[in-house]
Design a protein around this nucleic acid. Structure first.
Lengths: 247, 247
DNA sequence: GGCCTGCGTTAACACAGATTAAGCCCCAGA
DNA sequence: TCTGGGGCTTAATCTGTGTTAACGCAGGCC
């Protein structure tokens, strides 16, 4: 199934950080045996659901979100091809967030127990997954910093730069443009802003020549200036994998 | 060193989630062999430092924080006895945040390689550390939700409830009161608020009978109401450890 | 072809929380 | 004993962002 030409995103992503042997790759490919499609705006599962399986994203964007009782919503994570969705299921019986497709998506569901095999037979893969979990924490910390102490302009700059950095890992040919299949309301829910203010602020960023927009795509025009402006660090290309066990 | 009477906080904390055998306990105790004291407001290390060791907190509160170039500050994590500080060091060569003592503290430094032994020899402990890393993510998500979509009142309610829930794990005799060795400026830096508004908001919570204060201690008077008010979930007492390997 | 619905834009107005500043208290150090 | 600094409180003022609403546009559907 995964010829060189059509390599799994998951394998591609993990290979970016460590050389994987045949066996490890086999484990990963088994996680993507099954496929399932979802429509735009369809919920994959809801917070509170009893969860038994995780998903590898094969195609499309999704997001994890939580609602407050009165309807306010916060999107807490964006998921892209190659990501594993629902990892928190490892620590809790019930889902802590809901997950929704931002556009039509294809997912590969696999049972929690699929990970047991990995943990037992591949120390290297275990170390890698562990490292990715820790990195995820660091990315959350960056977001907390942005939401706690940055203006709307800075937060949007941060979002765009972070998206570019993340997507570049699996799309090695990507330059400074990316698709943005999110409404401005959704962007606001990521950054803790209102849809109206997102609109106004993006327009200002565009007028000031930091970015440009064209049919659903965003281009970052002055990446260094933007990075400087919101004190951005790329957490995706600078990981320590030196301590990983061999096998 | 760790008699029943004077059990290590780390062992106590981890034992709360899984039964640990002699060998595992031995591993953990080796992490706490060395001790070092720090003064109030002393930095343990700074963001950007090359890091080779982690610390177990033995006594006192600390926090991780980052500064923006212009001096704004965000505190991203509070550390208490039994916590392991610097876990992110596993994924990055350089510290991504600074760590400071909120009061006089005692830490047990140990080298990164101290964890290798754990990973190699105790699958159960590995699974537990993994689970704790994932739980940490969930707690970050809760904080992001609070900072993105909640009012100052709600955020403070969240902070107090979360502190209680966390401290109850290691202080089984704790009821509804806890010490709060943080200035209001520091609390503001945790929640993304100004010190002045923290003062005003805490006073209002007190006037409204939700909490009371007495020489550096906070008492939560109507815990259920508060939990309801900020839609709080206790992430500390509800983890799934059923899948852990035996040994 | 006409209608509906959802998204983005713009503008007017409202408000939560930031900022600045002053006063008080406590405590450490001279 | 005095002094200075840090933390907390309170008040006045300011501002960034939210809210509401109206409009235009595009796409899907009958």
């Amino acid at each position: 199934m995964a010829s060189e030409a059509n390599k799994s995103c998951l394998v591609q992503k993990l290979s970016h950080y460590a050389e994987l042997d045949e066996e490890a790759i086999g484990h990963l490919e088994r996680l993507e045996r099954e496929e399932r499609s979802y429509d735009e705006q369809q919920d994959i599962y809801l917070g509170g659901d009893r969860r038994d399986d995780l998903h590898v994203v094969k195609k499309g964007w999704l997001y994890s979100y939580t609602d407050l009782p009165d309807g306010r919503r916060q999107i807490v994570r964006l998921h892209h091809p190659g990501d594993i969705v629902g990892f928190e299921g490892i620590a809790f019986h019930h889902a802590t967030t809901s997950v929704r497709a931002a556009e039509p998506v294809v997912l590969c569901p696999f049972p929690k127990s699929g990970l047991d095999v990995v943990f037992e037979s591949s120390p290297k893969l275990t170390a890698l997954l562990f490292t990715l979990a820790v990195r995820e924490q660091v990315i959350f910390v960056d977001l907390i910093r942005a939401m706690g102490r940055m203006s709307a302009r800075e937060r949007l700059a941060y979002l765009f730069l972070n998206l570019l950095a993340k997507l570049r890992i699996t799309n090695t040919d990507m330059t400074d443009t990316c698709r943005l299949p999110l409404t401005q309301t959704e962007i606001g829910d990521v950054l803790g802003l209102s849809n109206v203010y997102v609109s106004k602020t993006i327009s200002r960023l565009e007028n000031d020549g930091f970015i440009s927009r064209k049919d659903g795509n965003v281009t970052v025009l002055r990446e260094d200036d933007l990075a400087n402006f919101c004190d951005f660090y790329d957490r995706y290309s600078d990981m320590d994998v030196s301590w990983f066990p061999q096998s």
